[in-house]
């Protein structure tokens, strides 16, 4: 991305469909599945997440010349964890019920792959404005994705939307289907939406479904993360190649030239 500079507005809108972090890059799956039992929870999680992402992109982009390269990942994690602690306090103070329902998934924003991935792939090598735009775009994409999932699960699972009763469900003979509120429904809805986004990307950007799932140029996207250990495990077992993997890095060959992958294994 640093290779070819794009306009600020491109950075802003790319996160919504084309590079939607949840449905196309498949990052941050854990909170997405766990908290989207209602539209309100999804929206709350999205906003908390966006706040952390914007702030961490700002801080890291501003400090990118100060942080030594060798300790950048611990430095990023510490910055992100501190920001998450701030968000935790804010939620506890102003929306205690949201804090209750999101539970441990607020502190777990720390290990969300999107934030660390954006820090490494974007904020680390771009200016402040572009980093803010990127964070807003990605945050917006993630928030909308969570809202969509939360909305669907709430409408089908409880027959309400943002806690408001939906008459066309409760009176239209369509009974709430309890399973959508359960973990099983979360996986199913997520699967259908990923397939839908595959299809949309296919017809809008004429990208083959396979291409959208194999995005090695996006650090942390599920294909980059899973192929790297897979390939190097095979190489290690055959003994043809000795690969030393330091913490938080995959072999350079596994990533796009110029892009260092930050989320090699799994960072949820």
């Amino acid at each position: 991305m640093a290779k070819n500079k794009k306009s600020l507005s491109y950075e802003l809108i790319k996160g919504i469909v084309k590079e939607n972090p949840l449905f196309v890059l498949v990052l941050g799956t854990c909170p997405a599945l766990a908290v989207t039992t209602s539209a309100f929870n999804g929206l709350g999680m999205g906003i908390a997440f966006t706040f952390v992402l914007i702030m961490s992109n700002v801080v890291i982009s501003a400090l990118r010349k100060v942080i030594p390269d060798s300790v950048r990942i611990p430095a990023y994690i510490t910055i992100i964890a501190s920001l998450v602690t701030i968000v935790e306090f804010l939620l506890k103070a102003y929306t205690p019920e949201l804090d209750q329902s999101l539970g441990i998934f607020i502190p777990l924003i720390t290990v969300n792959c999107i934030i660390l991935g954006r820090a490494e792939a974007f904020a680390n090598r771009n200016g402040l404005m572009a980093s803010i735009m990127d964070a807003i775009g990605m945050g917006l994409g993630f928030t909308l994705a969570l809202l969509l999932m939360g909305g669907l699960r709430e409408v089908f699972g409880f027959g309400t939307f943002f806690g408001i009763n939906m008459p066309w469900i409760s009176e239209g003979g369509l009974r709430p289907i309890g399973i959508f509120a359960l973990p099983a429904g979360g996986f199913a809805i997520y699967g259908v939406l990923v397939a839908l986004f595959n299809k949309m990307n296919h017809s809008w950007y004429s990208r083959k479904p396979d291409d959208t799932m194999d995005r090695r140029n996006y650090p942390g996207s599920i294909s980059a993360r899973t192929d790297a250990p897979f390939v190097s495990a095979e190489a290690a077992s055959t003994g043809t190649e000795s690969i030393a993997i330091s913490k938080g890095s995959v072999p350079e060959s596994m990533t796009e030239p110029g892009e260092r992958s930050i989320c090699p294994g799994e960072r949820d």
């Binding site: 502190p107 720390t110 290990v111 792959c113 913490k247 799994e266």
Partner: peptide
């Protein structure tokens, strides 16, 4: 190689 990758597995935290 899975040991170093595990640091940021959200399961642990």
């Amino acid at each position: 190689i899975f040991l170093p990758l595990i640091t940021t597995n959200c399961a642990i935290l």
